[in-house]
Design a protein around this nucleic acid. Structure first.
Lengths: 285, 285
DNA sequence: GCATTCTTGATTGACTGTGATCGTTTCACA
DNA sequence: TGTGAAACGATCACAGTCAATCAAGAATGC
């Protein structure tokens, strides 16, 4: 018997085998799917985890008990979908969308930073990629994004300043309805802003609370550098953060529509185009 | 049996010795795997280390005692599972000191919380353990500790509010030299405070900036609950956060010096004594 | 050299997670 | 409003895991 046991564990060491998922692994998987899709079905989870419906029901019950999701008939939904007023996409989800483009743009933007700078990063997946490019830098960074703060503190020597407010779980943003704040004492040489979309009307966000927070950050600097991959140039969202004339610089990739770039240049915006294929090359154009 | 063991270690391990592994080597291996995968199974560890399940269980118990992981049925999970681990040296250090006492005190303090409460947690290892006990709660929590915020956001349904300011890497504390802040709009029913020491002069901290930050938090509530294990009752540090008369409740363990407890009771402080051996028992005394 | 302490491994009974089955409840469609 | 299908909670037996205990070997100190 023991022989058999030993042999088994020995062979199954490579974790590719779908032997049996641990309870916590299932929980993590469930919560991840929930963050991405907002809702999960028991039947789907059976296929993904290989566990029985009974087990998955128990999992959902426990996770609901600890407040990490809300059960509905047929599955479960994210707690945030009802509780949080934010309409922003979840951090994890938007992080994986057009990741290569965002990464290229982020790398291009990082080249505009110098040690000693004081910069602002708003919450967004592109700015998160940007934060990843700042591991060797030594700057002061004000950000309202919890994941960006995590990244900078854990993997760089940059100093991090946070605004006060409530931490919104899904989007990982710190928001406050009040004006008094420590950030009113922060002066930045430039702000990097990622956004929901860019239209002739200006830089657009999808959520009024977020738009307000970004406008607040924007008041702490003169120079605004918008980082946006080429998929951002279609009309979406409805909250204008600022007009295009307020933008100092735009960093985007070569897929951006030329007529929008022309329009931006007419407004006095300096445009940097990054070729995603040779990501390190920065082309002033 | 022995055959099996030998065979196993021989075959399964590409990168190590067929002889017995030292305790510390196993610990390091366990923690490394934990960082990589977020979760480890006892059965897997048997295959990797060649040690028996009993030994590995003891390892996990010790590592949990020192706060370096959290045991779950079938294995153990990372204390900051899912999130970027915040490896703050000094935070980790104070976290592992008297971890069992702190954990017991934290559990006792957690019993004083109810769903719907608005509470404040200052930065400290005891309050960090307390945050771990709040996974099933649904409260509003104001904290100036980054690791506590991480824990609450990742593993509970509590709402989290942060003060603004600079994030200090080593201690994981958010500090601001300014008064204007979002927390001035926060009203809490109680504050849980961990501290550097407790003396007849009051609750003591070692750093003036931290003392000031805690005094600022303290102004947002009437009821102050100090959580401190019995090793905190010796004169250390030099910054008085508040006098003992300001303390509403003290939660400590049974090893606390009786004369200090008497003195505290004379000041009108309600004292809860926790027996670390039977941690769940809460004795009003 | 001998005793003490520490680490380790095996055994035991108790406990927890799992999957299958039951009857009941809820949902969707007519 | 009624009906069938799906989903639900409760329960049971099985397997894996747990903490406690004892015994054997290695390291340490006198």
């Amino acid at each position: 018997m023991q022989h058999c046991d030993c042999l088994l564990t020995d062979m199954s060491d490579s974790d590719s085998l779908p032997v049996m998922m641990h309870e916590r692994e299932r929980w993590q998987l469930i919560l991840t799917r929930l963050r991405d899709k907002g809702i999960v079905r028991v039947a789907d989870l059976v296929g993904v985890t290989g566990a029985s419906v009974a087990t998955l029901r128990r999992d959902l019950a426990k996770l609901e008990d600890s407040g990490q999701l809300r059960r509905v008939h047929g599955g479960a939904e994210s707690v945030a979908s009802g509780q949080t007023p934010l309409t922003a996409p979840s951090f994890d989800a938007s992080q994986t969308l057009n990741a290569d483009l965002k990464q290229a743009v982020a790398q291009g933007a990082a080249n505009l930073c110098q040690d000693g700078d004081s910069i602002i990063l708003n919450a967004g997946s592109t700015t998160w990629f940007l934060a990843q490019c700042l591991r060797r830098h030594r700057m002061q960074v004000l950000t309202n994004s919890f994941p960006i703060a995590q990244e900078l503190i854990a993997h760089s020597a940059n100093r991090v300043v946070l605004p006060g407010g409530e931490l919104y779980r899904e989007a990982g943003i710190i928001l406050s309805p009040f004006d008094e704040d420590a950030i009113q004492h922060f002066a930045a040489s430039k702000m990097f802003m990622s956004c929901y979309s860019i239209t002739p009307l200006g830089v657009i966000e999808s959520d009024p609370l977020i738009a307000r927070a970004e406008a607040k950050l924007l008041s702490r600097t003169e120079k605004l550098i918008v980082v946006a991959d080429s998929t951002k140039f279609e009309a979406r969202g409805n909250m204008v953060v600022c007009p295009l004339a307020r933008v100092t610089t735009l960093v985007t990739d070569t897929g951006a529509p030329p007529h929008m770039l022309d329009h931006l240049r007419q407004q006095g915006v300096e445009v940097f185009l990054i070729d995603p294929k040779e990501a390190k090359v920065l082309t002033a154009a």
